[in-house]
Design a protein around this nucleic acid. Structure first.
Lengths: 349, 349
DNA sequence: CTGGCGGGAGAAATCGGTTTCCCGGGGGGT
DNA sequence: ACCCCCCGGGAAACCGATTTCTCCCGCCAG
């Protein structure tokens, strides 16, 4: 229990620095202890070249010995930038968004920005409020797959600028956009299932507020026309939702189940396994996103692969540019790739 | 109602409130427009009772019509609190930490705090630097399963206070702690495997820097004494690591594989499936954490279940108390529960 | 009628840095 | 030898709020 064995403390305790309130060391304390002005300390801390080398060294030593660490908040106020990027996602528990997060985190981190993460819990109403609030504490915002209505988003757009939209296009909003052409993914799925001879397909529908969901459903409906019967089953976006919806999907007589996302598909697959329905022998299953786990389940999941980390990275390219006052790169739209694995097979006749 | 009492400063200056730099509406703009002092605007915005009702209303209307939104940064500086909590995790991609995050986010959110999330990418060296940096922008910190050495952590503890430790005990650090008694979990696993007749067990080891890993390994080694042969296989903390380590685990002749966590266990299970080794008929698999997916894989994973969201919630209880200046509740240590599912079975002789 | 009391609101200090402005001095050019 | 320019560094304004201190005014009691 060696208590005060402080290896750091050392030469502090100079008669100068009496703390007013807390024991935070301010720039003024350092200035006084080093016998210079706060301005000089600031210059030294920011590596301005206009300070004489020996003076700079002295200030640095003083700062170090006092354990001075500049207040990020005060810097934020003075500089007019916080060094934070806010990101709002519908569900932090979804690996898809985690990957986007990671991509963003890596890219922004390289430029010295940190992430302020907000989970809107799939609630369209809270979403924009949370986004606004986060934006207030950050320099920019990434709105990931927002569930809000176009109109509200457009109305409040000016309150969250600068921001980037990921996984969603909104008419009348001038924000840079990073999107995915899910429709082409859906068509690939249909072609694949058609080739395998499936004639009854069930779609496990995502949250009603989700725009990607609507897009997937509508594209499925359009592609199904004259090729196979499509049954839309209410579901959700999480594992449990898929698990519970599987029964209803089977009840439609479908031989192939398309999940709103991989979580839902895997949840359904779990249920099928539990009730002894073999995948893909009896029923095929398809997901969206290609979350890392899809590669490791048994059977491995056939899914529409989205370049998740790229989404985050591209988002930062645009947001970062705006923060630097540059024009952001043009909007980008990724074309997903159908990753055929083992959860799909010939239709059972 | 003396509206015209000319406190509106700018007589000659074309009366317009010209913005110096950006077009941010400040409290002074509102004050000028409403014909009051900034102090009064501040009082109104913070619902202080000492303002006459009609004046308050007028100020509110002015603020609204100008679209005034107080700067969170300036408030942070003036109030001495930012309303942010920082949390540092080794790997955001691990569902285990996501659940902790969610628990923390919910609990802290109820008290009006937002989360600043930092991923240390399993790098012990960066970890504390990142933590310090985050702490600077937040009012408190939650260090989740830190990989750093006890000594460094103890040395730097004062730079990140107030903070709470999750999933780790550190000698000589006065921080409140929320822990899990993994040792008892490990013993439960051993009892379970022993009962099933396993005599050769492989442990897929996590990151070297992970303290829970060391604890699990050592407890396993101790419990194995005289009961079964234990082979420690180098692995990691992610799906791919488990996938790649599975072969080496099999090569030891083990009939049961214990993964460092669920991801590793599931990765290994994926490999076993791929090479045609049946689980649990030929080999049993056990994980740690009980991430949501473990319930849905085929076969469903036997795992040591940790109350993940509770960890986050309890962490906030302690941090929140400290931020309020109260004494934090006593340290807590959860006892995990062995969740026996389908990935474990009798040993193949 | 007057002193005391209290509530409402403004002036100014403060929070902890950054940055502009300005001044004194040394060096170089003519 | 003189003048100008440049450079290092201090004083002070500023960023946008909060909060203390103070003042003014009206009301009530003596």
């Amino acid at each position: 229990m060696d208590e005060a064995a402080g290896p750091v403390a050392g030469p502090a305790e100079t008669g100068a620095g009496q703390r007013r309130r807390g024991q935070t060391v301010t720039i003024r304390d350092v200035a006084r202890a080093a016998g210079v002005s706060p301005a000089t300390v600031s210059r030294v801390m920011n590596n301005r070249e206009t300070v004489a080398p020996d003076l700079a060294r002295r200030v640095q030593q003083t700062a170090a010995s006092l354990g001075y660490r500049p207040s990020a908040v005060a810097q934020g106020l003075a500089r007019g930038r916080t060094g934070l990027v806010a990101i709002t996602v519908p569900d932090l528990g979804n690996p898809m968004f985690q990957s986007v997060l990671r991509g963003l985190s890596r890219a922004a981190g390289r430029d010295g920005y940190r992430l302020l993460v907000t989970d809107s819990h799939e609630l369209p109403l809270e979403e924009l409020v949370l986004a606004q609030e986060s934006r207030l504490r950050a320099d920019g915002l990434v709105l990931c797959s927002p569930r809000s209505h176009d109109r509200e988003l457009a109305e409040l757009a000016h309150t969250i600028e600068p921001f980037v939209l990921v996984n969603r296009n909104v008419e009348g909003v001038g924000a840079p956009t990073v999107a995915v052409d899910y429709a082409s993914g859906v068509r690939a799925v249909c072609a694949h299932l058609g080739w395998l001879g499936h004639s009854r397909v069930a779609y496990l529908e995502g949250p009603r507020a989700s725009v990607p969901n609507r897009e997937r459903r509508e594209t499925l409906e359009a592609a199904a026309e004259g090729r196979f019967a499509l049954h839309v089953v209410e579901c959700g976006s999480m594992l449990e939702d898929g698990f519970e919806a599987a029964d209803r999907a089977l009840a439609t007589g479908a031989t192939a189940i398309v999940g709103y996302n991989d979580l839902v598909a895997l949840g359904a697959q779990g249920k099928l396994d539990e009730i002894g329905v073999r995948v893909p022998d009896q029923v095929s299953v398809v997901g969206f996103d290609d979350i890392p786990l899809s590669r490791y389940t048994a059977p491995r999941l056939t899914t529409v692969a989205v370049p998740q980390e790229d989404l985050g990275r591209e988002a930062w390219q645009r947001l970062g540019a705006m923060l630097r006052g540059e024009a952001p790169p043009a909007d980008v739209c990724f074309t997903p790739r159908l990753e055929v694995r083992q959860s799909t097979g010939p239709a059972l006749r």
